[in-house]
Computed example of a mutant assay.
Amino acid sequence: MYLLIINPASGGGAGQRTWQTVEGLLKSRGIAHEALFTRSLEQAEAQVLHALARREDWRAAIVIGGDGTIHSVLGALRRRGVPLAVIPAGSGNDTARGFGIPLTIEAALDAALQDRCLEADLLSGSGGLTLTAVASGFDAQVAVNVNNSRYKRLCNAIGAGQLAYIIGILHTLLTFKPCRVSVTLDGKEQAFEQAWLVSVCNLPSYGGGLLICPQAEAGDGLLDVCVVHGCSRGQVLRLFPTLLKGTHVALPFVSMLRGRSVAVHFAQPRHAIGDGEPLGTAPLAVRCEPGALRVLTPLAAAAQVGAAEAGSCQASG
Rank of each mutant, 00 (worst) to 15 (best):
G161W: 07
E289S: 09
G208A: 15
F176T: 09
L109N: 08
L123G: 06
L77Y: 09
V286L: 13
V286S: 05
A111R: 08
V144Q: 00
Q20E: 15
A300G: 00
A285D: 03
W58I: 04
G66N: 05
R180H: 14
L49K: 14
G100S: 07
H271K: 05
L52N: 14
E56P: 15
L74P: 03
M1L: 14
Q114R: 14
Q215H: 14
L293C: 09
L3Y: 06
S40Q: 11
G11M: 08
L131R: 06
L84Q: 08
A272Q: 11
L129G: 13
A140R: 08
E217Y: 08
G246N: 05
H248F: 06
Q20F: 05
V86H: 02
G66L: 03
P283I: 01
A195S: 09
Y206M: 13
M256C: 14
S182K: 11
H265P: 02
L170K: 01
P290K: 04
A120D: 06
L3K: 03
R260K: 15
I5T: 04
A135F: 00
P269T: 10
A89L: 02
V295S: 12
T69G: 07
D139V: 14
P178K: 13
R294Y: 11
A9P: 01
R80S: 15
D57E: 12
G65N: 09
A35L: 04
L74W: 06
D275E: 02
H71W: 10
A300T: 06
R258V: 00
H33G: 03
L36F: 01
G221H: 10
V249M: 01
P178D: 13
A282E: 15
D275I: 14
G311D: 05
P278Q: 07
C155G: 03
A133G: 01
F192W: 10
G100E: 08
L223M: 10
D110N: 11
S124L: 13
A310C: 03
N148R: 15
I70G: 07
E45F: 03
A120F: 08
N202I: 08
W19R: 03
N156W: 14
P252N: 00
G15K: 11
Q314C: 06
A164Q: 01
V236D: 00
V295P: 07
E217I: 08
A302F: 05
A282Y: 04
P102R: 02
A218I: 12
V134F: 01
F192Q: 08
A44G: 10
G209Y: 02
R294A: 15
N202K: 07
N93H: 10
A216D: 14
V82A: 02
L173G: 07
R80K: 15
K152H: 00
V48D: 08
Q268G: 01
I31R: 10
G280N: 05
S199W: 00
S10H: 09
P178R: 13
A51L: 04
